[in-house]
């Protein structure tokens, strides 16, 4: 079918917009590589995992404590937020009366709209002293995980809710006709049918947790070390860049771009996985 003139113009315009967005992402990647290249040429990659510590001003570039801090905090937040989010989606979809479910959904959307720096401020003023009473200094991996959990909970809840809403009504009616209980319907029909959507949403939330900067910077303590317990302060890759970028010059600055590159690779892997999983839904 040939396109009309308006359609052709519109297609060209949309192609332009899409190309622009794609080009910007590629340019950012290129820029990161370009800025870290001078450093990567004379500092072998292995030094980013074998150096004694992260003291870039003294030429020490150990990145692994921050890589693991990013991984631990993201993993912890996802482990807490996923069950909570999925449970809240199940509640609002299958158990709550429609009016309550509507209110509840608005509230969760509101939670998603709170700026991350507000979460961070609340964490620093309220949560950190509370945890500090339990085990000083209060700003710690645990505080970071809790604040991140709050931040990504709405993402998990809303995407799980949308995935559950997309389960064909025929499935549910069929299950009801077979006389399944409410929980039987959920665990036997709704959850398996919405599975890939829920997983993709959770990975999306994990991406948000990895990328979160300000909130974590304020509550995680920012000491570069391998945490021995949940109460140890840690520094994530994003917090590292935000803390030091404004004051970094020369090699120090290039080292921060290397950590930015590492972060970008982590996010790419995550987004790729999410994409693969959601593709399975369409063609599987």
């Amino acid at each position: 079918m040939s396109l009309s003139r308006t359609d052709r113009q519109l297609a060209a315009l949309l192609l332009g917009c899409a190309l622009l967005a794609a080009t910007i992402v590629l340019l950012i990647l290129l820029f990161l590589v370009k800025e870290s290249w001078p450093m990567l040429q004379h500092v072998p990659l292995i030094r980013f995992v074998t150096d004694a510590s992260w003291h870039p001003v003294d030429g020490l570039y150990q990145l692994t404590p921050m890589l693991s801090a990013t991984l631990y905090s993201t993993l912890g937040a996802v482990l807490l937020a996923a069950p909570l989010g999925i449970a809240s989606a199940l509640f609002s979809r299958y158990y709550a009366p429609p009016f309550l479910a509507g209110c509840y959904r608005r509230l969760i959307e509101l939670l998603a709209g709170i700026p991350s720096v507000v979460y961070g401020f609340w964490g620093l003023i309220t949560l950190a002293p509370l945890i500090g009473r339990l085990h000083p200094p209060g700003v710690s991996l645990l505080t970071g995980i809790l604040v991140l959990t709050l931040m990504i909970l709405p993402t998990v809840a809303l995407t799980a809710d949308a995935a559950l809403a997309a389960v064909p009504v025929a499935y549910l009616r069929g299950a009801a006709a077979l006389g399944l209980s409410r929980w039987g319907l959920i665990s036997g029909v709704a959850l398996p049918a919405a599975r890939s959507g829920i997983i993709a949403g959770t990975l999306l939330a994990a991406g948000r947790a990895i990328g979160e900067t300000m909130a974590v910077l304020m509550v995680a303590g920012n000491v570069v070390q391998q945490p021995q317990s949940l109460f140890d302060p840690v520094r994530t890759l994003t917090a590292n860049i935000a803390l030091e970028m404004a004051y970094a010059t020369g090699e120090h600055r290039a080292a921060l771009f290397v950590s930015g590159l590492a972060l970008m690779v982590m996010v790419l892997v995550l987004v790729g996985t999410a994409e693969l999983l959601s593709r399975k839904r369409h063609y599987g």
Binding site: L124, I125, A128, P129, G132, P136, P137, G138, V139, L217, M218, G221, N222, V223, V224, P233, R235, A242, L243
Partner: peptide, 20 residues
């Protein structure tokens, strides 16, 4: 250190929130 901070305000908030 046990805590690393960015600006002065964050430092003051941290000390206010932690008696030790």
């Amino acid at each position: 250190p046990q805590v690393i901070i960015g600006d002065n305000q964050q430092g003051i908030k941290t000390v206010v929130g932690n008696p030790d």
